[in-house]
Design a protein around this nucleic acid. Sequence first.
DNA 1: CTTGACTGGTACGGTACGTTACCGTACCTA
DNA 2: TAGGTACGGTAACGTACCGTACCAGTCAAG
Lengths: 215, 215
Amino acid sequence: MAAGKKTTATEKPGKSRQETRREEIIKAAAPVFFEHGFAGTSIDDIIAKVGGSKRTIYSEFGSKEGLFAAIVTDNARHALAALAPEAMAGRNLDATLLEFARELNRVQMSPTVLALYRLVVAEGVRFPELAKLFYDSGPGLASARLSQVLKEFLERGDIALDDPDGAADEFVGMIRDNRHLKTVLGLMSRPSAEDTEQRAQTAVRIFLDGVRPRR
Amino acid sequence: MAAGKKTTATEKPGKSRQETRREEIIKAAAPVFFEHGFAGTSIDDIIAKVGGSKRTIYSEFGSKEGLFAAIVTDNARHALAALAPEAMAGRNLDATLLEFARELNRVQMSPTVLALYRLVVAEGVRFPELAKLFYDSGPGLASARLSQVLKEFLERGDIALDDPDGAADEFVGMIRDNRHLKTVLGLMSRPSAEDTEQRAQTAVRIFLDGVRPRR
DNA sequence: CTTGACTGGTACGGTACGTTACCGTACCTA
DNA sequence: TAGGTACGGTAACGTACCGTACCAGTCAAG
């Protein structure tokens, strides 16, 4: 009791009015930027969604770019959190890779990450720090984690590989295949769970054993 | 007029003046759209580059969207022409795949295709027919070609595979790996020819034989 | 209650946008 | 050489943009 500030009963404790307003704005503005892009979105569009006045936005985010950066940062943090390094201790190489493929697929095919991908690819050249943030906490992190795993198995002699970093990049690319691109382009709706599982298994099998039959 | 220079521009015999003007506009406007995106580009920006007046643009392309569509279509046609189906007769599976990987890499890492990729990913939802055009004459065509090849080798028993279409998609994804994404995002300059060749060989080897050592 | 910061609503400044119109000129063809 | 067409230059038009200013209302804290 002594530690907590008294706030309005309708709001969660520990958050000032300003903080909750900030979060409301980010939450309401994100879909607008996701749909129309940076240049195609106007502050008035956002006001129409979230209510209030521009004064609040400009005193909180400083500029349209500031709001955009906050939205990308916030969404990247939340939507890509599932890729944060975990134990991923692998006795079994097959199971480890399969679980990795599933997790990566789940994350990158989520609507938020798909929208982030479109946005960051579009504006990456104009917002280099956002591009770096997205890459480092998304595809880059996934590749680094996988590379770490591959190196462990490499030391045990379970796999034979010249360039673990390169192979990790290529495996991540296998998961981000043409189906991902078609979905990004709006040419395909999200594939079914069965298709996704099937593809993950195929990718792992090819990555491990290739397509050439063993005799 | 500052300089009374003639705008003859040494026209080719088979092209009318209108055609050459159209091509000049497309050629000059493309980098502007590539750099600033659709919403971020103004007709005045293009006029500043190509000269002339807006009347010419609007009588030729009808609208800003018409000009944009013409630019994407034209550049896709030219830059992706190298992926047009050829013989690709493969006695040797390894060599065929390696050549395919090289070709795909060359095309997708070219500055024009990289710029097209950014643009189409950004505007794909708003210009579905352009997204379809790009995909069908780029990554989709590549995958279809590869699938055809895989099926031929499959019939001969040279490879063992459940889903050739899926495998083709995944191989194309392998080539379009994290290095491609980093380059798209502006986080990396184009990799050297040696690195690209190395990666192509690694991808083909993994695709054919996997990373698990054969005993 | 008083105080002070934050918020909503609205209007405004200055600029830029896409698009159309006008008009004189350069060009191609007949 | 004559005529029709395309082009260049400029300007206009209505709208929309980002960012700021002003004022009244709201809320939390002392």
